[in-house]
Simulated scan of single mutants.
Amino acid sequence: MLHTDEVLTKARGGDRDAFGVLVEPYRRELHVHCYRMLGSVQDAEDVLQETLFAAWRGLERFEGRSSVRSWLYRIATNRCLNALRDGGRRPDTRPATPLPEPTRIGEPLWLQPYPDALFEDTEPGPEARYESREAISLAFVSALQRLPARQRATLVLRDVLGLPAEEAAQMLGTTRAAINSALKRARAGLEARLPAGDPPPLPGSARERRAVAAFVEAFERGDVDGMVALLTGDVLLTMPPRPLEYEGHGAVARFFRDYVFGADRRFTLELTRSNGQPAFTYATGGDLTTPHGTIVLTLAGDRISAITRFRPLEQREEREEREGREKRRELRPRGVPAG
């Protein structure tokens, strides 16, 4: 293993392998960082690639006054802010088929589940207020997306990564006083949106396995009463990016009876994990090669306090998304390091 200074010298000389050695240790955690900022796995991947390209192009200007990690986080954070300002993606909130009457209409939110297999559990700094896994949960990421972009960035840098105020200010090109003011507002906004309730059981624990197994068994049988018995009284069912929200036993039961299990439909489930939470993909007829979507469960103690349903992109949306990503890549100058 070459010393970092030697690697940096080689990378500045145009050695792509050396550049890869320099940045590869931070790739996964940077992807998680971009996801927290943007709420989208695909957008996080795009911004990560833009970050690495910008780092490659700006290597000569890196003077080593900060660590390579801090330098990359500065680039990634500002690229995320640019993406949020551009606002290129607008959620499609149109239901494909009529849905039951919701409890209320919320604000449309673009949000995707983050597979646990991609999650890099990093050690936060001493000033962090949230554990890494707590800060990847759906509730936390959803609440983040409701904050103004600069407040969002400030809170992630200070309370998730645990960076000192001075370093966060340098990354965002502002003052320490401005950082402290933005952080105060961001904390208030976040706490107002985070749900209260019992903490979830430990991932993979017997308590979690029992709750998930009971839900899956009831779901595959189409047993709505059995499912409802596993829910908290204030359970919330949401389907990002649609703004429809179903709260409480009655509303959730109607949704599953009328929309999910209507016409005696039954589903096959495949367990997985997303955002540090139990999840599963589901499909009818046992064909999981074309799943209807993903459901992520939020647990509070032994009960399920939230059900978040994500549908796959429709063919038109998927094609437009792919074409947009390819177009953005075509606009990059040649020479970007292979990702």
Rank of each mutant, 00 (worst) to 15 (best):
Pro124Gln: 04
Leu118Val: 09
Leu48Pro: 02
Thr294Arg: 08
Glu45Asn: 10
Glu123Trp: 11
Arg65Gly: 11
Leu155Arg: 02
Ala253Val: 06
Val336Ile: 08
Asn275Val: 03
Leu163Arg: 08
Ala135Gly: 06
Gly226Cys: 10
Tyr35His: 13
Gly262Tyr: 09
Gly162Ile: 04
Ala214Gln: 06
Phe53Gly: 15
Arg129His: 12
Pro312Tyr: 00
Thr122Met: 08
Val141Tyr: 09
Leu237Ser: 06
Arg158Lys: 07
Arg207Cys: 09
Ala218Leu: 06
Pro98Phe: 01
Ser274Cys: 10
Gln112Phe: 01
Arg129Thr: 12
Gly14Thr: 06
Met37Leu: 15
Ser67Lys: 08
Leu22Ser: 07
Asp116Glu: 09
Met37Pro: 10
Arg221Tyr: 05
Leu190Asp: 04
Val224Arg: 06
Glu321Gly: 00
Phe19Glu: 03
Arg89Leu: 12
Ser274His: 14
His31Ala: 08
Phe53Gln: 10
Ala76Glu: 01
Pro195Asp: 04
Phe53Trp: 14
Arg209Asp: 12
Arg74Glu: 13
Ala206Gly: 05
Leu331Arg: 14
Arg328Tyr: 00
Leu190Met: 13
Thr4Ile: 12
Pro203Gln: 04
Ala149Ser: 15
Gly125Met: 04
Leu161Ala: 07
Arg89Asp: 08
Val336Pro: 15
Pro98Asp: 04
Ala253Asn: 03
Arg242Trp: 05
Arg90Lys: 11
Leu118Arg: 13
Gly335Pro: 00
Asp302Ala: 05
